[in-house]
Nucleic acid binder design. Structure first.
Length: 878
RNA sequence: GCGAAAGUGGCGGAAUUGGCAGACGCACCAGACUUAGGAUCUGGCGGGUAAAACCGUGGGGGUUCGAGUCCCCCCUUUCGCACCA
């Protein structure tokens, strides 16, 4: 190969670009981008009749904001490495990409730039698709899905009608979360724990009364919870978050009749409790300030009304201040009483700010002795504290007086006292028996409540899927007939953030005739939450061209469940719980056979810089475009894999990309010189024995294959995969030097054969060719452009994407020698190197012959212990 | 407050089961090749010492021949949940 020295000076400068030893990512990547573009079928999944086993790898689809950010690049680099690896493992790989393209930013852009949302969105998609192709991601674009196009969203509408038929979509007036900045309603899942909007973290969500469409996700609460146990390959963190979100809680409802006058709003208060066994200790009832009965009870007392109003205001203020957890408890005595159905006792009715309206019934029985919050409240307002579960700690003898310092006693491992006929019963049994008792006597029953609420999907926005419903004065709510789908989103609509749904101001859209009676009717003008779009898009990928149905059950049956889903942990609740819900409904509709959409989930860490999330305001944004222009796509992608394990946050360091770029270029130069090595050293005769350097390199190759193969199958620590590749290349350089001398040392040039000390048998050319071949194969998932270029350089004509992944030979990967540390009385005194297959006796002999060991044991009585790699040899010397 | 994860050189990070702590890379230092070097190649690089010894994985105990790894207590950071009755 051309020696860099001969062409390096003035003459070489002009031809620098053409020199094969100079890595130029731009020209290489451009060349392959063009070639791949000419072969659109390259990355296409084979049909479900393929003889290959299927593998569905999916990355979360992006919102087309207009530019990829590093988080995208990282996400897709992981998915692409996996997709390429699985192709090389012989699988039929489905690796699609699409656009979650409805949503508010398009409307904001429309307002800011006077650009129609559709135009803005489709333009962004074009830009981002170009960026993705520039990165070399192996997407099957024949499966592309764009959620804002009628070909897709008509099926949202179709699903909505099916949900409606099944009673899973319903309309109700309710208090809803309203973000003043979004000018629309938010689902519970879209309200942060701070009480602010998920898109506007500084804007407190307001409560408004609106008529909204809801999806009955709570019907599936139990199954959504239970089936988490069938997802062993989901991160525990995500499963825990979902469990908490669903918040299943077993308990009982108990009715307390109002004492004396029946209230105008009813004559009883129903409370929810998980501890019905403590009901004899209930010394008050507590209502949430917003509880509808509250105003009835104190309607004629303006002073009390004002105090309750204060309680509510205080909560709002606390939320605004970000004080979520530790709001101080306050309450108001209504002066009314209710009757405990178990013992007939009158208990005062209070209003308390620590009772939540939307959990349980919005009313509780307060048992200060056995609930921490009730205890705190009772202490503060001097309410009775009555012990009804004998408080004992582990080891306490039974009997004796209840111990005030042990209160509140919240354990269920003790016996009831002061509880009438129930006294003496273990707490756990009492919960069951007392619920039964309540049910038999008609004042209560066992029940299960959930934190999870039904999913409100109505949005008062333009850029979303129109909800296919019509309101007729005569017929009421009338679904749009299936044959009339899609309900097309009108264009040229004036978009503002004020005055309700923009579609409401488009008469030709809103005014329709009733499908049932033909009379004048009004169309629903709200659109769907965009999380509807992303709840089932991955099914559509299997055949996005179908025009008569959303999916083909057989094709879906072939591809599903998704083998590997990759995305950010920020979707642990919203997207991933909605998707699971949607799949279960689809299964009940007979559309799909799988109960869960995703077999394995991987949540990658964020890309940060300087310890903070990248953001324009911090000015620490790294643009993928700039990185690609500077270092090429291969180096950029590879850096995102190398800089940190994929599940951890990646702290971006510009110098780090430089390092990976150097590595990539080092690989290029090596193969450029050695694809057809012409140094005489390679042609030296050999007698079949390999030189130690050759053996070393061969071992490195097989160890690298082993490591990377295992990493793909398990831990996914691609940072170490890349580092193994780097080490391997370092070995190749060392080997090259051993064969032909240091190219940069003229004194050594032309040295033929193996260096002194070897057995004089340089490895054959074939070994060099084989090693390079394997190196390129292993590079393919991480740096596809470079790998393809080198593949060609090696004279390979087969398609690298489908070339078989290299196998490793465990024998060749094994170390030939093992180092032992030798301890003398607990301290390491020496190290010896012994053949890997040496017997214990041989090791012992060698150890005792070691000079340092001899010195250490001279004149002593002792025990020696030698250790390494799990082998332990004890030698006792007297 | 509750729950989970993490804490290793100047930095990003290695070290599947307890077995040479710091792989690989960055930064830095030295050398080579150079008209030049922000290119390339070679070597060095936890502290400490002339060299050893010795000390080193947030802190303190413990188990073990041997602990970054296992056990107990504490500290810090990040994330999730935060009155869920």
């Amino acid at each position: 190969m051309a020696d860099s020295k001969t062409s390096s000076s003035d003459a070489g400068r002009a031809e620098a670009v053409a020199r094969p030893d100079r890595y130029d990512p731009q020209s290489i990547e451009q060349k392959w981008t063009e070639r791949w573009a000419q072969n659109p079928a390259l990355y296409c999944a084979e049909p479900s009749t393929s003889a290959r086993k299927k593998y569905y790898v999916l990355e979360m689809l992006p919102y087309p904001s207009g530019a990829l950010h590093m988080g995208h690049v990282r996400n897709y680099a992981i998915g692409d490495a996996l997709a390429r690896y699985m192709w090389m493992q012989g699988y039929n790989v489905l690796h699609p990409m699409g656009w979650d393209s409805f949503g508010l930013p398009a409307e904001n852009a429309a307002i800011a730039n006077q650009t129609p949302p559709r135009e803005w969105t489709l333009g962004n998609i074009e830009k981002m698709k170009r960026q993705m192709n520039r990165m070399g991601f192996s997407y099957d674009w024949s499966k592309e899905v764009t959620t804002c196009l009628p070909e897709y969203y008509r099926w949202n509408q179709w699903f909505f009608l099916k949900f409606y038929e099944r009673g899973l979509a319903y309309r109700k007036k309710s208090k809803v979360n309203w973000c003043p900045k979004c000018a629309t309603v938010l689902a519970n899942e879209q309200v942060l724990s701070s009480g602010c909007c998920w898109r506007h973290e500084d804007t407190v969500v307001e409560q408004r009364e609106l008529e909204q469409w809801f999806l009955r996700i709570t019907d599936y609460a139990d199954e959504l919870l239970r089936d988490l146990d069938n997802l062993p390959d989901w991160p525990d963190k995500v499963k825990t978050m979902q469990r908490n979100w669903i918040g299943r809680s077993e308990g009982a409802l108990v009715d307390f009749n109002l004492d004396g006058l029946a209230g105008p709003g009813g004559d009883k208060i129903t409370v929810f409790t998980t501890r019905i066994d403590t009901i004899y200790g209930a010394t008050s009832l507590q209502l949430a300030p917003e509880h509808p009965l509250v105003t009835d009870l104190i309607a004629n007392d303006p002073g009390l009304l004002a105090k309750v109003e204060d309680l509510m205001q205080e909560q709002v203020r606390a939320k605004e201040a970000g004080d979520v957890g530790g709001i101080e408890k306050h309450g108001v005595d209504t002066g009314h009483f209710a009757i405990n159905p178990f013992n007939g006792e009158r208990v005062p009715i209070w209003v308390a700010n620590y009772v939540l309206l939307d959990y349980g019934t919005g009313a509780i029985m307060s048992v200060p002795a056995h609930d921490e919050r009730d205890y705190e409240f009772a202490k503060k307002f001097d309410l009775d504290i009555r012990v009804v579960i004998y408080p004992r700690r582990e080891g306490d003898a039974p009997g004796g007086e209840p111990n005030e310092p042990l209160l509140p006693f919240v354990e269920t491992n003790s016996l009831l006292i002061n509880s009438g006929q129930w006294s003496g019963m273990p707490s756990g049994d009492a919960i069951e028996k007392m619920s039964q008792h309540a049910e038999e006597h008609g004042f209560g029953k066992a029940t299960v409540t959930y934190r999870l609420k039904d999913w409100g999907i109505s949005r008062q926005r333009y850029w979303g899927t129109p909800i296919p419903m019509i309101y007729c004065a005569g017929c009421g709510i009338v679904p749009v007939p299936e044959k009339d789908l899609p309900v097309l989103l009108p264009e040229n609509v004036e978009i503002t953030l004020a005055g309700g749904s923009p579609l409401g101001k488009v008469p030709e859209f809103a005014n329709v005739s009733c499908p049932q009676c033909g009379g004048a009717a009004r169309r629903e003008t709200d659109t769907m939450d965009t999380f509807v779009d992303s709840s089932w898009y991955f099914y559509r990928y299997t055949d996005p061209t179908l025009s008569d149905k959303p999916l083909d059950s057989d094709i879906v049956g072939y591809w599903f469940p998704i083998d590997q889903y990759i995305g950010g942990v920020e979707h642990a609740i919203l997207h991933l719980i909605y998707s699971r819900f949607w799949t279960k409904v689809m299964r009940d509709m007979g559309l799909v056979r799988n109960a869960e959409p995703v077999e394995r989930l991987f949540t990658q860490g964020m890309v940060i810089k300087g310890g903070a999330k990248m953001s324009k305001s911090l000015g620490n944004v790294v643009s993928p475009d700039e990185m690609v222009a500077r270092y090429g796509a291969d180096a950029t992608r590879m850096y995102t894999l190398f800089a940190a394990p994929p599940d951890r946050d990646l702290d971006w360091q510009d110098a780090g990309v430089e390092g990976v770029s150097r590595f990539v270029s080092r690989v290029y130069r090596f193969v450029a010189r050695n694809a057809k090595p012409d140094h005489p050293g390679w042609n030296a005769s050999h007698d079949g024995e390999m030189s130690p350097a050759a053996r070393r390199m061969q071992r490195a190759v097989h160890q690298t294959i082993k490591h990377i193969t295992e990493d793909f199958g398990g831990r996914w620590h691609f940072n170490t995969s890349v580092s193994f590749l780097m080490s391997l290349v370092n070995e190749l350089y060392a080997y090259e030097e051993s064969v032909q001398g240091d190219k940069n040392h003229p004194s050594k040039q032309g040295v033929s054969g193996a260096p002194a000390g070897s057995d004089g048998a340089p490895a054959p050319l074939a070994l060099m060719a084989e090693v390079q071949r394997k190196l390129v194969l292993m590079l393919a998932p991480f740096a596809p452009y470079l790998a393809h270029e080198l593949w060609e350089m090696l004279g390979e004509t087969s398609d690298l994407l489908r070339a078989p992944w290299p196998q490793y030979d465990p024998e060749l990967a094994k170390e030939e020698e093992v180092e032992y540390a030798i301890q003398v009385n607990g301290k390491i005194r020496s190290r010896i190197v012994v053949a890997a297959d040496a017997t214990e006796d041989q090791v012992r002999e060698r150890a005792l012959a070691d000079e340092k060991v001899k010195a250490a044991i001279a004149g002593k009585e002792m025990v020696k212990v030698m250790v390494v790699k799990g082998r332990l040899v004890n030698i006792v010397v007297k």
